Computed example of a mutant assay.
Amino acid sequence: MVLRRGLLAAFPALLSGCASWQAPGFHLPKLPPAPPGPYRLGPGDALNLRVFDQAQMSGSYHVDDGGNIDLPLLGLVQAGGLSTDALAKSIASQLQARQLILHPSVAVEIATYRPFYTLGEVTTPGPYPYRPGMTVLTAISIAGGFTYRAETAYVGVTRTIGSKAAQYRAPTTAMVLPGDVITVFERRF
């Protein structure tokens, strides 16, 4: 009888512990929408640059860890955070300001986007090439799909906004950006 009373007294405490339990990643803030406007370059992007009538400056370049590209005649040029159009205008104005080319015509296009990454309960975690218009579900499919233990309703997305990286909770319909780290949580039974 004493044992039964002890269990009955402990039962509400056990239930209150269950009420405060949340699935992994559920406590994360919701993923904000992708910033409007054109794509912003960042470390890991590969670019094709063409300067009209200047074969020595035209070619393929990679944005380095500092967000720069190293151009002949100009040296390091800031590319991180700029759109391709803004980078082309910046290069043209620097060439003109240094009086290297009187009326430069510059074109910049993205050859390869920086990769996105998958972690956790996916068949093959790792880095994968980004494609514009990808959703989280598309990214998980590229990584081989969910494992049988995966939480399939939402994921964690680590994204750098400005200069700060933070982790957010996102549905599988959310848009992926280059450099995102997608974490698929383990489902709790």
Rank of each mutant, 00 (worst) to 15 (best):
L8E: 14
A10N: 02
P12E: 05
P12Y: 10
L14Q: 00
G17P: 00
C18M: 12
A19T: 10
Q22P: 00
P24N: 09
G25Q: 01
F26N: 11
F26I: 01
L28W: 12
K30E: 14
P36G: 10
G44K: 03
G44C: 09
N48K: 14
N48F: 11
L49S: 03
R50W: 09
Q54Y: 07
A55C: 02
A55E: 15
M57F: 06
S60W: 01
S60R: 14
G66S: 09
G67T: 02
P72S: 06
L73A: 13
L74Q: 08
G75F: 09
G75H: 10
Q78E: 12
A79H: 08
G81Y: 01
S83M: 01
T84D: 09
T84V: 11
A88E: 10
S90F: 02
S93K: 09
L95Q: 06
L95R: 05
Q99H: 14
L102V: 14
S105Y: 11
A107G: 01
A111T: 09
A111F: 03
R114V: 03
R114E: 09
L119S: 04
V122F: 02
T123S: 14
T123R: 15
P125A: 08
P125K: 09
Y128M: 11
Y128V: 07
R131F: 13
R131L: 15
P132D: 03
S141M: 04
I142T: 10
I142L: 06
G144M: 06
G144L: 08
R149Q: 10
T152V: 13
A153K: 11
G156E: 09
S163K: 13
K164T: 14
A166R: 12
Y168W: 05
R169N: 06
T172V: 15
T173I: 00
T173W: 01
M175I: 12
M175N: 10
V176M: 08
L177H: 05
L177S: 06
P178Y: 03
P178Q: 08
T183Y: 12
R187K: 12
R187D: 08
R188Y: 10
